[in-house]
Amino acid sequence: MRPFSYVRAEDAITASQSIGAGSAFLAGGTTLLDLMKLDVMRPETLVDINSLRGSAPAVALTQGGLRLSAFASMAETAADPNIEHDYPIIAQSLALAASPQLRNMATLGGNVLQRTRCNYFRNPSWRACNKREPGSGCAALDGVNRKHAVLGVSPHCIASYAGDFAQALIALDAAVETIGPAGPRVIKFEALHRTPGDTPQTETNLGQGELITAFIVPRAPWTRRSLYLKIRDRESYEFALASAAVALDIEGDAVKQARIALGGIATRPWRAHAAEQALAGKPLNEDIANHASQLALAHASARQGNAFKVELARRTLRRALLQAASMKV
């Protein structure tokens, strides 16, 4: 860890104005401090925004749906009874992430911005990592890549986006409220993250000093019949090998509308639009679930170690769809 200066921000506007080049916001610090100790991130200034934690209720019910404070901890948001009952996909995506200790520390805003778990990125002694050192190459392409992405990949980076909560947000058409030096704005959650392309070092479309303040989740007929299915080697405290965030509006026997996102297998939060469309108007059975999951992975591009994830992701989505269809709501 390199020496840095530390500033405590009292409000969001001051926070966003305190950020210069080489600065970083410090919320729960669960990713940032690790990466600083590992000498991967070397901010010159940390702007501590923890004083904003109480600035808004963790969960506010609005006419249109939900407003989730970006400064709330994962734990308190997941435990909110409205979330648990009406938006199980959100509660599950939060509760299945990390460990209780981390969920108590980490904020929602920090969580959606967590960096990849690719160890070629997290350990600077590996020479090649375009995300860490633009132009240096990608050691993961032909290295150990069991946990790497098969969707949204580029020849420059296959690091997977590790988060869970973001899959729920992208599936539910959420929006992001931010405040930046130029003032507040609202962007679609789907527009927050970028695929790596040839600039894997740039992971989001946030401007310099732009701070996420809230997530807006619209109420919709599919939010109650929703779930987050996370498949991993062990039962808890592990990132997803593959995950599926699924929300269904079912009328009679047929799916009216579906919302689907896939985690653990893509370079960014991943919405599976084609699979959603394939389900619309159809009764949900194994065959159609299978068909939708084939479409979701149609453009997958795997390497040696992660080839199985294409099939695993298909099966994960198939299982999630069948499980959501059988939910009592």
Binding site: R117, N119, N123, W126, D142, G143, V144, K147, D233, R234, E235, S236, Y237, E238, F239
Partner: peptide
């Protein structure tokens, strides 16, 4: 290729948690 261990931390070198 490099003769180097990759998953050299307890996030990636898995051991069971209680739930397992």
């Amino acid at each position: 290729r490099y003769g180097r261990f990759y998953n050299t931390d307890l996030a990636e070198y898995l051991i069971p948690v209680n739930a397992d």
